[in-house]
């Protein structure tokens, strides 16, 4: 699993990049009450705002970690946003992306580097 400085995790499944937010990010947000996901099939560019995530405290955005196409979104999260607090790195994935070159993932932090970042 790889990690971004925006506190997202990335993991490769069936040649797609699955994206979610880290447990650290979920804990910082607090109880998540609303999620807006992108439309399946859209093309996004890195750092574009693709999801809205709101907790009882505040609203924030999830940025596309890479250039690519959103091929699938986890619509179960819309019905039950609290999954993000319960299982951030498992059930609570946000979307799956198709990207041209999976090797770009090597540029992201591994778990040890991410843990060092969030202390």
């Amino acid at each position: 699993m790889k990690f971004t400085e925006e506190h997202e995790w990335l993991r490769v499944e069936d040649d797609l990049v699955v994206v979610g937010i880290t447990e650290h990010a979920a804990a910082q947000l607090g109880d998540v009450v609303f999620i807006e996901l992108p439309e399946e099939g859209i093309t996004v560019t890195k750092d574009e705002e693709v999801c809205v995530i709101e907790s009882v405290k505040a609203a924030s955005d999830i940025l596309a970690p890479l250039d690519g196409e959103i091929v699938e979104v986890n619509s179960a999260l819309v019905d039950d946003p609290s999954k993000v607090n319960e299982d951030a790195i498992g059930d609570a994935w946000f979307f799956k992306m198709k990207i041209d070159d999976l090797s770009v993932l090597d540029d992201f932090m591994d778990e040890a580097e991410y843990k060092a970042l969030v202390g």
Binding site: G30, D31, V33, S55, V56, K57
Partner: peptide, 12 residues
């Protein structure tokens, strides 16, 4: 204190 370990939702 804005919240305790219980969190805003459970505190409410």
């Amino acid at each position: 204190p804005v919240q305790y370990p219980l969190g805003v939702m459970k505190e409410h």
